[in-house]
Design a protein around this nucleic acid. Structure first.
Lengths: 157, 157
DNA sequence: ATCAATGCAAACCTTTTGCACGCGT
DNA sequence: ACGCGTGCAAAAGGTTTGCATTGAT
């Protein structure tokens, strides 16, 4: 690789809670023997800064400004790892496959308002599984659920 | 086309409500100038009989027993039309892209329990948008929402 | 030094499209 | 006869994988 990695940080690390969250995430990876490469860190950085759903393609394009030779497979491999580790969330809406966002700090169960234009999210208060009188059909074993409210955020319409 | 079409019906049309629903759907298509081809009808038939989420691939394979030369593009073109017409619903869960099911007779707003193994569904009573005290973030314009409960049905676990 | 991460290229899978022909009306 | 529907083939997206090399620890 001719390009240089930047293990410490890149420019926009101006936000304390971001830095804290990043450290927490990277710590988790480190403990399991995964390596803290510049690209892996930049994915976490970017998702923390953007704080919205981003496609693999958009992520790639943003990161290529810093790592010109970065390729889709690296992005996807890292996204997969980060998803398995619970560091990011995946959703599919609109066109063009999956989109990803950083998991909320708290890591608590939650649902989102999602802007279908820019991918920005807001937390929904409460969870339908608690507030709806959910009684599963006889024999049905509930494993998970999905609740998302789509629309356009104030800046996008 | 060397194969024969079956405009009236194929074998399993044993259920009255299915026949009624089918007529209603086909009527709707006819009014708009779409033609009631054997393949289009068999997609509706199959989805009515199965009454669960099915992938384009599974649909193709089932239908190829009757129409050996049926191809993906025809399946997709018809699925797209049926979706636009509100005759079928699309969802993405599990692997392998979208899955489709016939829209409930009533055509009322609803949500589903979905078996992730076989795609079978049950209606959820109530809608979180009504029962949750939804107050969108300032400026956020709600356009739609998604609420699905995943798990395994009695026959699949 | 070790083992994970990456780039490259190719493959894979689902879905879409252009075109000429066939079929429902 | 008209115009939608279909098959074929090819392409377009998004995503994954094998392999050799590079890099983090």
């Amino acid at each position: 690789m001719s390009q240089k990695d930047h293990p410490q940080a890149h420019d926009h690390e101006h936000n304390h809670s971001h830095a804290d969250a990043k450290d927490k995430f990277l710590e988790r990876l480190k403990e399991q023997g995964f390596k803290l490469t510049g690209k892996r860190q930049m994915i976490v950085d970017t998702l923390l800064e953007e704080d919205r759903y981003i496609s693999a393609k958009e992520l790639l394009e943003r990161m290529q400004k810093v790592f010109p030779r970065l390729s889709f497979d690296t992005v996807y491999r890292n996204l997969h790892l980060l998803k398995v580790e619970g560091i990011i969330e995946e959703s599919t809406f609109g066109d063009g496959g999956s989109k990803y966002r950083i998991t909320c700090d708290t890591n608590q169960h939650h649902h989102h308002y999602i802007c279908t234009v820019c991918g920005k999210t807001e937390l929904v208060e409460g969870c339908p599984m608690d507030l709806l009188g959910i009684t599963a059909p006889r024999g049905f074993q509930i494993e998970s659920h999905r609740f998302e409210i789509f629309g356009q955020c104030g800046e996008c319409h």
